[in-house]
Amino acid sequence: MRVKKSVFKLILFTSIISLIAFCFIRQYATSRKNTLIYTFFRQSLQATDTSYYFIGSSRVQTSIDPEVLKQTLGNKHIYNAGISGGTLLSNCIIARRLMQNKSPKVLFIELTPMLPEVPDYLLKHQDDLNLEIFGTANQLLSHLNFLSKCRLLLQLANKYVTSKLFIVDEVRNLMRINVEKTEGHFGFQPISENKYHSVTPFLKFQDFNNYNDKGSVARYQQYINELLKLGHQSNSKIVFFLPVTFRSEDEKETTIPIYKSLPDSTKLQMPEVLLKSMENASYLADNNHLNLAGAKVYSHLLAVQLLPFIKKE
């Protein structure tokens, strides 16, 4: 086979593309150490007081206002650690990193489907933040057989490699597109608009009776147990909660039965009065997120449910 020429051409081509990409990243990459997420982790890992973290997806970002909670509950160590595109796996990764600080803490974790995905934003920052993405995934998947585990770890590896190879964020920086949104990937992100005018996305009290898929409970039990075990080992209390809005029925089918199966001590209660009070289309930013008005109301209502878990200072 005469393929030496091809190998040479491929190496040359890859080198050219890599060189251009490397120069580009050096020139236009955001300085990671100035980002909100970097500051958040640095401070959280040094904290000595009991801290309270809300970990989840963009729904947590837009719905839980830490300032409202701080004022209502009289505790200033309440943080919103929601991340855009967050999955249960990324929640676990963030939780695990926070658990490295042995000071007491309560981690409120949003129950979402266990997608084999981690937000690009987290992958981009994983080296600076020392996030153990593969370690966490490996531990969570320990109950799976070798083949299933390999399959899922390969998906993660693929995501990791592509996040390093692709330079979409740097191009955005170059073109000055969404620069103001760069920090929007992490923490509380209020949205003032109301672009959706239906109450369909809201979680309803009757949904707790409508979804009873035992299959998802069995599948997720292992992940939940792993997380509770980790929390126990690191002086952390884990409390799960459901988002107040859902984009799809599939998601409800998966998460509601899991939520129902959890003991009361490990979940935030969602009483009928809370859900009824939230069911208002003017509280929605879009079909999946609360807007600022919704976030204010929800945070006030949530504060009541948080009383058993958060102590006044």
Partner: peptide, 13 residues
């Protein structure tokens, strides 16, 4: 039309 999630589980394939 909806988010059909590709859940992380053994039954994925």
């Amino acid at each position: 039309t909806s988010v059909k999630n590709n859940y992380l589980s053994e039954t994925n394939s």
